[in-house]
């Protein structure tokens, strides 16, 4: 097990290096250091001396190879530095933003997983009946709607017309519940359909297995078959599917946070992209990659733990 983890961690290094290099090229392929400097300097026309001063101060005057190497080494050492636009310490901001993002995205995550399992079990139990068909139709409808529409429409109906929660804002001191209610409901509605369809497939795979027939033949009740035998085995793919996204919950949602004014990491990245704040984008992409790789390793470990048939060495 330990050897496996070590090997996976080593494999992560080239991936991280690749992502860092690619981000760097994508960023400076679309914008020159000078234009980034101008954006971050005053809105008035800065003098060439001011532009050069800014570029020098932020180290964008060095040869590309040196910049790239320095940026990569700094990232790997977790030295994120300061934001190009606001001069804020990026680590501090990431630590502040992680909380709100986790609160909202894990509420959505937990709600979606449990909600989806529940509905998927029902749909699987009544396979072929009107319940299954209705579930399928509703799911396909929900999946056909673009995420933006959920966010804007959800805000319009739940916050504006029905007034269940604030359109905007986040202040844990005056009660988390009211701020996360509407965003969570939107995230839930937008994400549950895909999960239901997926989990239903997992469940049906199990239902057609021989052991189910054996259990039925032995007279085990249908409810017990479903709850004890089928669900337990179907949980293996469900768990491995969900574990991969858990680390990413820290990053939150770009659009949802932006629309509801939740000061999480999603809106932090959104803002940085809008203002050409390369140092923040770089740090966030690095963090995202890291969490993703971590999620994948966790998946493999989870597999080994929940599925006795899988061995890792």
């Amino acid at each position: 097990m330990l050897r496996f983890i070590l090997r996976r961690l080593l494999q992560a290094i080239p991936t991280l290096l690749g992502v860092l290099t690619l981000t760097w090229f994508l960023f400076f392929g679309t914008a020159s250091a000078e234009s980034i400097a101008r954006r971050n300097l005053s809105s008035k026309d800065p003098t060439p001396a001011q532009v050069q001063g800014w570029i020098k101060e932020h180290g964008y005057d060095q040869p590309p190879a040196v910049q790239l190497r320095k940026a990569t080494v700094d990232m790997l050492m977790f030295k994120f530095g300061k934001s190009d636009a606001t001069k804020e310490d990026i680590w501090t901001r990431i630590r502040q933003g992680a909380g709100p993002s986790i609160v909202v995205s894990s509420t959505i995550f937990i709600g979606t997983v449990f909600g989806a399992i529940l509905v998927a079990v029902l749909a699987a139990a009544f396979r072929g009946t009107y319940i299954d068909k209705t579930t399928t139709i509703v799911c396909v409808l929900l999946m056909s709607v673009v995420y933006t529409v959920y966010v804007i429409g959800g805000q319009y109906f739940l916050s504006k017309q029905l007034r269940y929660g604030p359109i905007w804002g986040f202040d844990p001191a005056s009660g988390l519940f009211k701020y996360i209610l509407v965003p969570s409901a939107i995230g839930f509605a937008a994400g549950i359909a895909t999960e239901i369809r997926l989990y239903r497939t997992f469940l049906l795979d199990e239902i057609s297995q021989d052991y189910v027939r054996t259990a039925r033949a032995k007279g085990v009740s249908e409810t017990r078959i479903l709850a004890q035998h089928v669900l337990k085995n179907a949980l293996i793919p469900i768990i491995t599917n969900t574990v991969a996204v858990i680390p990413g919950l820290i990053l939150g949602g770009l659009l949802l946070e932006n629309f509801f004014g939740i000061p999480g990491l999603g809106s932090y990245l959104f803002e940085a992209l809008g203002s050409n704040d390369f140092s923040v984008v770089r740090a966030m992409v690095f963090l995202g990659t890291l969490l993703y790789i971590f999620g994948l390793i966790m998946t493999d470990i989870a597999y080994a733990i929940v599925d006795p048939r899988v061995r890792i060495d």
Binding site: Y164, P166, I167, S174, G175, K178, Y179, L181
Partner: peptide
């Protein structure tokens, strides 16, 4: 919802 006194006021109480 009905008991917490659900409100859409975005500011501290």
């Amino acid at each position: 919802l009905t008991h917490i006194g659900c409100t859409n006021n975005p500011y501290p109480a």
